[in-house]
Design a protein around this nucleic acid. Structure first.
Lengths: 220, 220
DNA sequence: TTTAATCTTCATCAAATCTTCATTTTTCCA
DNA sequence: TGGAAAAATGAAGATTTGATGAAGATTAAA
């Protein structure tokens, strides 16, 4: 269901978290401290669970570092029950603060609430120009008629539509759709956009606008 | 800062919430029960606080009704401390669950965390005197209508608006907007300013003043 | 392996934008 | 009030950026 990163110095807690969340279908990555986290790959996670008191690692500092890098929900899971600590944690950019010992049901409920919100805020309303994205089959449909997009074209459309209104440069589209390591040329995107526009225009649908000097966006 | 709707049957609590959140600059609307809420105008709020046990109103039912209408964060603020109740509340679409009696600092911290997240997930904006700058897409908006600024024009506007009230010479604007190494002529700025003014005046907006012999400033 | 589909690159064209400059207008001050 | 300095204006040329069409490279399918 979701990819969750859990950071704690207590492996027993990590095991327990994995057991609980694994049952809900989540994939939990365990990290015993900051050194086990690849900061480059933080955007591989949908949600991050953080302990505060860890040897060699300050959870608060880690939280603000993470927050500078990614936007996913960050939850503290800690034995520090003082209100001041909660306030500090949330002020640093965390999204929730759960005290140990935590209720299993509470943990699950809070995590799914955060994931749900993330999906809610990122969900694609299919009313946009009537284009409907079938995420699993990777097909785009207008008025029940399939648009014959290639894989790359579909991915670009889905990415732009998912973040409609936002403008992305060609580099950003490359990174987000084909991965950080993509060494493709910008012109690849230019050409894909051209082909997408051609195909969509057959359906009287022109949702992709170019913002001069900046990039492209899916019209809101 | 934010418009918050608080629903509770206990007016003492409502007053208290208003006092606390008012100090943070939020505007709190108090509702003593469902009948006092205009469901048509829910999207006027940035965040909603809900009690669960209210005469004539079931907070849970209200929560799911609200969730069907708007996407803003909904927080329960309740005396029901059972874990099952928290689980139910979050499952119905709420984003947080705070138990009474709540700590003042905790309430403030949690609310600002939720508001921050909402802003984070929507794009970063800076509003200056009626003009709204979408920092990531580099677009300026007045009354939800986009101002067709070019890249350079936008950058100059954003720079001046960000430092509104301060006067900058043409050289300073060149350096700050186009970089120290810019070898452009001052007249470039003059022309950009002219074009910006022309475009903004279409929106009845004349924020850029010339300070004779010194430079330009964005009126405070 | 052959064939077709898709992806990527590149040269060229067109358009938007940026820059410059000559000219006119405004402002300041003697 | 007149003249000098500064800013505004309008238009032309230079530059940058995006669109286009076609060809080669890569991948998947038959």
């Amino acid at each position: 269901m979701a990819r969750i990163l859990a950071v704690d110095d207590d492996t027993a807690i990590l095991e327990m978290v994995e057991a609980i969340l694994g049952k809900d279908g989540h994939f939990v990555t365990k990290a015993c401290g900051m050194h086990e986290i690849d900061m480059e790959k933080l955007n591989a996670y949908d949600l991050i669970l953080l302990d505060i008191m860890m040897p060699e690692t300050d959870g608060f500092a880690l939280c603000s570092k993470i927050r500078r890098l990614v936007d996913c929900p960050v939850l503290f899971l800690t034995a520090k029950t003082e209100e001041s600590s909660l306030v500090k944690g949330l002020a640093l950019g965390a999204d929730d603060y759960i005290c140990k010992p935590f209720g299993v049901m509470e943990l699950r409920a809070r995590i799914s609430a955060h994931l749900r919100r993330e999906r809610r805020e990122h969900s694609v309303k299919m009313a946009v120009g009537g284009v409907c994205f079938h995420l699993s089959s990777k097909q785009a449909v207008i008025d029940d008629k399939e648009i014959p997009l290639t894989r790359a074209e579909y991915e670009i459309c889905e990415f732009l539509a998912r973040n409609r209104g936002q403008v992305f440069s060609k580099e950003q589209i490359l990174e987000n759709v084909f991965g950080f390591d993509s060494e493709s040329n910008d012109s690849t995107i230019t050409t894909h956009i051209k082909n997408i526009r051609m195909k969509l225009s057959g359906f009287n649908c022109m949702p992709i606008k170019t913002v001069w000097g900046i990039g492209y966006k899916w019209e809101e």
